[in-house]
Design a protein around this nucleic acid. Sequence first.
DNA 1: GCTCTAACCCCAGACGCG
DNA 2: CCGCGTCC
DNA 3: ACGTGGGGTTAGAG
Length: 390
Amino acid sequence: MGIHQLMQFLKEKAPNCFRTLMLDYFAGRTIGCDASMAMYQFLIQTQSAGQTQIIELTDKDGNRTGHLVGLFNRTLQFLENGIKPVWVFDGKPPQLKSGELARRKKLKEEAQVKTELALEKGDMQQALLQNQRTTTITSIMKDDAIKMLKLLGCPIIIAPCEAEAQCAELCRAGKIYATATEDMDALTFRTPILLRGFNTKKEPIYEIIYDDMIKELELTYEQFVDLCILCGCDYTEKIEGIGPGTAYKLIKEFKNIEGILEHVQKVNAERVKNNQNPKYTVPSKFLYEDSRELFITPQVQKGEEIQLIWNKPDVDNLKKFLIEEKGFAESRIDNGLKRIAKKDHTGFQSRLENFFGKTTKIIHPNNSKAKGKSNKKNEQPQKSGGKKKL
DNA sequence: GCTCTAACCCCAGACGCG
DNA sequence: CCGCGTCC
DNA sequence: ACGTGGGGTTAGAG
């Protein structure tokens, strides 16, 4: 679950670290995308309720393909807008996450039972909801996605561990402009820029700038990590009775989790003396030190070692794969490829254009339904400063 | 009252035809 | 331009 | 073998 309620906390306590941007702002930029989360969402959202069963997109062998449809469209949307995506996949989750993963697995199993129950009752709406909760990503599905994205010409990174941590490393190394994810722990991994909102065209894209955030909160990085752990992260239980609000106050006052634990013991002891229930409950195994280490020095591949290269799509093999193996309609692939036919996938053209200020308003009729007023914006000649800094 | 937390509910995409 | 069935 | 999140509402505690 990333960091519990961090988004809402930041909106409140650090409102000035946000910017909202339109898609065309990113033309010519490289963006690191969290592949697992995107796949998961596409798989969920391509399910629908039939008369007596749940319908999912699959190939002829029954392998699910909803994530491929989604990633295909999303990638083309990026390329069409001159954005160069690098898809980053999760590797092996850290040991500390196993408890959280077990919890999720159990929830999925319960949802599976509820799905079948709802199907028996004929409650298709409930069946769909529960079936969405059972969604998991198999290694076949992941391999299919990697194969397709490579054939589209995109660089792929399989992170040694958490994708968010790898994106943060790439961003700090200057290999990507920003990390695109809905998962707020990218900030805990210290990504300089986090982007949210690519999942819906209805709203603009939010940019969160790490340096602004940390300044506005008046915390050190280490303190911010402690704050995130106290809010609730994937690696350890949190202290019951402390949410984002009090965690922030306590960090300010006692500097770190060690100091807060001392304070917590005192407060609880005092209350026990007065025959009151303790105010806080510290988990029996509060692994905050290990969690810290996972956030601060995560297992990643060094950014300098990574070369990102975009190629033109391998049209023949892409078609062979998607049509013959995955059951895609040829016309959809052709339509998609037409959208990016004029783009240069090496990224040279878009950088050059960006340098000369030519790409500032590549936006498409498709997207313009978003707000209605956003149309006007595109028409404004954004000529001002001429070329940007380099 | 007001603030905060926790538990529980809901929600999530894109294309293209008519 | 919108609504809704379909995408595989 | 394993994997997403967010918002809203409400009840209850301090």
